[in-house]
Amino acid sequence: MEASNAKIRDYLAFGSEGAVASVFVRYSNMHGKVTGNGIEITEPIMIRVISKHIAVSRETVSRIVNKWKDQGIIENENKTFTLKDMDYFKKLLVCDKCGVNNCVL
């Protein structure tokens, strides 16, 4: 119940970009490996899967992800993403005020 409420909060309070960020943070908590380059998500993630999680069009998710790639916030190779700036996501989602203990999908 806590995770569902947090996902709804992320979408309503922070829009599409916040919802996509929320999915990346949750994947990093479930499948993330800290590297010298950031947090590598070891499970492949497809844009269409993210869009289904948050009920946003694939095109919108793709546009947000491409913006973050251009800004150097994330990078990807063969459906494997690395979050290079986790602080960006935490600030965007105001994680310090969230209160969710188990931030996973």
Rank of each mutant, 00 (worst) to 15 (best):
E2F: 12
E2K: 08
E2D: 15
A3N: 10
A3L: 12
S4G: 06
N5R: 08
N5M: 12
N5W: 09
N5P: 00
A6V: 15
K7Y: 14
K7G: 14
K7E: 15
I8T: 12
D10M: 07
Y11V: 09
L12R: 06
A13G: 06
A13F: 11
F14Q: 04
F14C: 06
F14N: 07
G15I: 12
E17Y: 03
E17A: 10
G18D: 07
A19M: 02
A19K: 02
V20S: 02
A21H: 05
S22E: 11
S22K: 02
V23A: 09
F24H: 05
V25F: 06
R26Q: 05
Y27Q: 07
Y27M: 10
S28M: 05
N29C: 08
N29Q: 06
G32M: 01
K33T: 02
V34T: 10
V34A: 14
T35G: 08
G36Y: 00
G36I: 00
G36W: 00
N37M: 09
G38Q: 02
G38Y: 02
I39W: 04
I39M: 08
E40T: 00
E40P: 01
I41S: 02
I41W: 01
I41G: 04
T42D: 10
T42W: 02
E43G: 01
I45C: 05
I45R: 01
M46V: 14
M46T: 13
I47Q: 07
I47W: 04
V49S: 13
I50A: 04
S51K: 02
K52Q: 15
H53E: 15
H53V: 13
H53W: 11
I54E: 15
I54T: 14
A55Q: 12
V56D: 12
S57C: 08
E59C: 07
E59V: 14
T60E: 14
V61C: 13
V61A: 10
S62P: 00
S62D: 10
S62N: 09
V65R: 03
V65D: 08
V65S: 10
N66P: 01
N66Q: 12
W68R: 02
K69W: 09
D70C: 05
Q71N: 11
G72I: 06
G72H: 03
G72R: 02
I74G: 06
I74H: 01
I74F: 04
E75T: 00
N76D: 11
E77C: 07
K79L: 09
T80E: 04
L83W: 00
L83D: 05
K84N: 11
K84Q: 12
M86K: 05
Y88T: 06
Y88M: 09
F89K: 04
K90W: 14
K90G: 09
K91M: 15
L92R: 03
L93G: 03
L93Q: 04
V94P: 01
C95F: 13
C95A: 14
C95N: 10
D96E: 12
D96S: 08
D96W: 03
K97E: 15
C98M: 10
C98S: 10
C98Q: 09
G99R: 01
G99A: 08
V100W: 06
N102V: 14
C103R: 00
V104A: 07
V104W: 04
